[in-house]
Design a protein around this nucleic acid. Structure first.
Lengths: 206, 206
DNA sequence: CCATAAATATGACCGCAGTCATAATTGGTC
DNA sequence: GACCAATTATGACTGCGGTCATATTTATGG
C-alpha cells in the first residue's frame, strides 16, 4: 500500500515527531530547559518515555529539528537573492541578520539550541551542517565572482571566518545574563570589520 | 595560627584539589571523559565522592583549573613581549598560536575542555574570562598605538573578532573526527584574513 | 482472514551526576 | 587538655537521562 509516496506509517511518524517537538519547546519555554524532564515531554506529547528516544537520541536533539527548517529557509532566501541579477553583500548579510532576531525571542532557550548546534558538528554524517557550510561557500563564491570580495582567498576559509564571527558574537550575546549589546547591530559591525580588515589604510578614517 | 599567610588548612585544601585534578585528567586521558565517573576520580584521588563536589560544582569543572594556569601564563608572556620595545603583531600572534599546540595533544579531551570553557562565560563572576578579555583588549590597544592596527575601531570589538576566529577555528578542528587541517597553520591564515580584510584591493595579489 | 515479518511503542530498569544531613577535623580560646 | 565554632569530609540517597527486552501495531502475501 504505497499511495502517493507517503504511507500512513510515515505520516503518523511525522505527526508524532512534531507533537514531541511542540511539547518539548513549550515546556522548555515555560519551565526552562533543565527543569523539563523527558518524562514530562513524553507525557505532554502523549507517548511513552521510550518513544521519545526513538525519535531523538538525546534530550537536546529536539533542537536539531528546528535547524533543518532554518537551513532550508536560508537556502531559499539566499537563492532568491543570488538569482535576481547582481547579488550584493549587504543583502546577503541582512538575510543572515534576520535569523539573529529569532534568537532574541528566548535567550535561555536559544543558548541551549546554539550549544546543541555546536555539538552536532561532531557527527560527520550530519547534513544540516554541511548545508550551512555549502551555503556559505556558495555565497562567497558568488560575491567573489561579482568582485565584491577578494578572489585570492579560498572561499571556504572566507566563509568560515565570517561564520565564526557570526557565531562567536551570537554566543557571547546569549551567554551574558543580560543582553550586553543590540545583537544584530553588533554582528553587522563585526562582520564589517572582517570585510574591511584591521590593517590601517593610507588615509585613516578620522 | 596564621603563619606566613598560608595555614595548614589552605595547604591541604590546595593539595587535595590538585590530587583531584591530576586523578581526573589521568582518567579522562586513559578512558575518555564520558567513560570516567566521578566515583572513579574520587577513588583515584583518595577522597569520597562528595568531596569532589566540594571542590568542583560539576564534573567538567575540573577543566577550569587549567584555564587559570593558562591565562596567567599568557599574561606573563604577552607582558614580556609588550615590555621589550616595539611589540609587533606576529610575535603576539605566535604566543596565542603556541597555546594551540596544547590542544593537539589530546583532541577528545580538549574538546570537552573547550566546551566547558564556552559554558563558563555564563557566570558573570568568572574572572578567568575577564582576564582573557582584558588581555586581548590590552594587546589590541598596544598594537593600535604602535600603528599596526586601525585606530578607528573599538579595541574590544577588534579583540573579540580575533578571538572568535581563533575559537571558531579551534572548535572546528576539535570537533572533526579526524584533524581536518593543520591547526596552527589554519588559525594563522584565518587571522591573517581578518587583519587584511576581505575587500578587494586596487592591485589584487594574483 | 490468517500468517509472518518489519517497524514502532512501551515502561521497567540501570548507572551516574549531583545533593544533603551528618560526622569528623581543624584552629582558636581559656 | 577541654571546649567551641567553623570548616571540610563523607556516603547514603535521589532524580533523571538513556537503554533494552518485550509487546503492540502495521503492511504484505498467500
Amino acid at each position: 500500500m504505497t499511495e502517493l509516496e507517503v504511507s500512513r506509517r510515515e505520516r503518523k511518524k511525522e505527526e508524532t515527531k512534531e507533537r514531541i517537538v511542540k511539547a518539548a519547546l513549550r515546556l522548555f519555554k515555560d519551565h526552562g530547559f533543565d527543569a523539563t524532564t523527558v518524562d514530562q515531554i513524553a507525557e505532554q506529547a502523549d507517548v511513552a518515555k521510550g518513544t521519545f528516544f526513538n525519535y531523538f537520541p538525546r534530550k537536546e536533539a529536539v533542537f536539531g529539528y528546528l535547524s533543518e527548517t532554518w537551513v532550508a529557509d536560508a537556502e531559499q532566501k539566499i537563492a532568491a537573492i543570488l538569482a535576481k541579477g547582481l547579488p550584493s553583500w549587504p543583502k546577503v548579510r541582512d538575510v543572515f541578520l534576520e535569523f539573529a532576531s529569532i534568537y532574541e525571542e528566548d535567550r535561555e532557550l536559544s543558548l541551549h539550541m546554539a550549544m546543541e548546534w555546536t555539538r552536532r558538528m561532531h557527527a560527520p554524517d550530519d547534513d544540516v551542517c554541511r548545508r550551512w557550510d555549502a551555503l556559505g561557500v556558495h555565497v562567497v563564491r558568488q560575491l567573489q565572482a561579482q568582485g565584491e570580495l577578494r578572489r585570492d582567498v579560498a572561499a571556504e576559509r572566507a566563509s568560515q571566518v565570517l561564520a565564526d564571527v557570526y557565531h562567536g558574537t551570537l554566543m557571547m550575546w546569549l551567554e551574558s545574563p543580560e543582553p550586553p549589546f543590540p545583537l544584530k547591530d553588533e554582528i553587522r559591525k563585526r562582520l564589517a570589520l572582517v570585510i574591511e580588515g584591521l590593517t590601517p589604510r593610507a588615509k585613516e578614517g578620522r
